[in-house]
C-alpha cells in the first residue's frame, strides 16, 4: 500500500508538467522516421515484401514498440547510484520502506507517464506511415509482458546502480547495458534478422526478454508465444532479484556514513 502511495505521488508530480512529458516523448518521432527511411529502402532493395517472416509494416510496428519500451522505461541506475554516492541512501534506509522498492515505485511512475505519450506519438506516426496496428486483442498480453520486461530491467539497473558502492562512477556500465539492449535486446533490429548463432545467443540472454519479447508479441500475438515469453521472464526476474538482494546486502555492509 505504501509503495502504491509513492507510485501515485510520483505519477501526479510527473503529470503536473504535461508539456515537458510531451516534448520529451517527441524524440520517438525522429527515430521512427529514420527507421522508416532505412527499412523502406532495405525492403525495396531486397525485392521482397517479407523478410524473415516480417513485412515492412510489421517491422515498423515492432520498432515502434521497442522504441516505446526503451524510451519510457524507468531510469533507475542513475538515481540509485546518486543516492549511494551523495550518501542520501543513509537517510532513505531508516524510513519504513525498502530502499529498492521505493526506487521501483517512483521509477515506474515516471515510466508510465512517459509510456502513455510515447506510445501515442509513436503509434500515431506508424499508423499514418504503414497502416493500422496489429490485433488489438493481443495488447493486454503485451502490456503484461512489458511490465515483466521492465522488472528484468529494474534488476539489471539496480545492479548497475549498486556498483557505485564499488566504483563510484557507473556511466560506462550504463552505456554498455544500453547498447546490449540496442543490439542483443533487438531494439534497433529484430532478432529474426540476425544470423542463427547470434539470434540463439541473444535469445538466451535477459536483454531480449526486456525488449524483443514484448515487441515481437505485439506484432504476432498468440497465447503460446506469451506463455513461453512470460516463463522466461519470470526465470530471469527470480535469478536477477537474487543477485540484487545479494549486492544490496553486501553494499550495506560497505556503507560508511560520515557526520550527520
Amino acid at each position: 500500500m505504501k509503495y502504491w502511495a509513492i507510485f501515485k505521488t510520483q505519477l501526479a508530480t510527473r503529470l503536473a508538467y504535461p508539456a515537458d512529458l510531451i516534448a520529451g516523448s517527441l524524440s520517438i518521432l525522429i527515430f521512427l522516421w529514420v527507421f522508416l527511411q532505412l527499412w523502406r529502402t532495405t525492403y525495396s532493395a531486397s525485392g521482397s515484401s517479407v523478410i524473415a517472416g516480417l513485412s515492412l509494416a510489421d517491422t515498423l510496428w515492432y520498432l515502434m514498440m521497442t522504441e516505446t519500451i526503451l524510451i519510457s522505461k524507468p531510469r533507475l541506475a542513475r538515481s540509485i547510484s546518486e543516492a549511494v554516492k551523495d550518501g542520501s541512501v543513509a537517510y532513505l534506509l531508516n524510513k519504513p520502506y525498502h530502499f529498492l522498492l521505493y526506487q521501483l515505485s517512483a521509477g515506474w511512475a515516471d515510466g508510465f507517464s512517459r509510456l502513455l505519450f510515447t506510445a501515442l506519438f509513436g503509434g500515431g506516426l506508424v499508423w499514418l506511415l504503414v497502416g493500422p496496428p496489429p490485433d488489438v486483442r493481443g495488447w493486454p498480453l503485451v502490456f503484461l509482458a512489458l511490465l515483466l520486461g521492465w522488472l528484468i530491467d529494474f534488476c539489471v539497473q539496480a545492479l548497475i546502480g549498486l556498483l557505485a558502492f564499488v566504483t563510484e562512477e557507473i556511466s560506462a556500465f550504463e552505456w554498455i547495458y544500453q547498447k546490449a539492449l540496442f543490439i542483443l535486446g533487438g531494439m534497433l533490429i529484430p532478432l529474426d534478422f540476425f544470423p542463427p548463432w547470434l539470434r540463439n545467443l541473444s535469445q538466451a540472454l535477459p536483454f531480449a526478454y526486456t525488449i524483443y519479447g514484448p515487441a515481437r508479441l505485439f506484432v504476432s500475438p498468440d497465447l503460446t508465444r506469451f506463455a513461453v515469453l512470460a516463463l522466461g521472464q519470470l526465470f530471469w526476474i527470480l535469478l536477477l532479484w537474487g543477485a540484487v538482494t545479494l549486492a544490496f546486502n553486501r553494499g550495506m555492509r560497505w556503507l560508511t556514513i560520515n557526520g550527520g
Partner: peptide, 10 residues
C-alpha cells in the same frame, strides 16, 4: 574505455 566499447557495441 566505456565510451569506446559503447561505440563499438552500437
Amino acid at each position: 574505455i566505456g565510451m569506446f566499447l559503447n561505440d563499438a557495441a552500437y
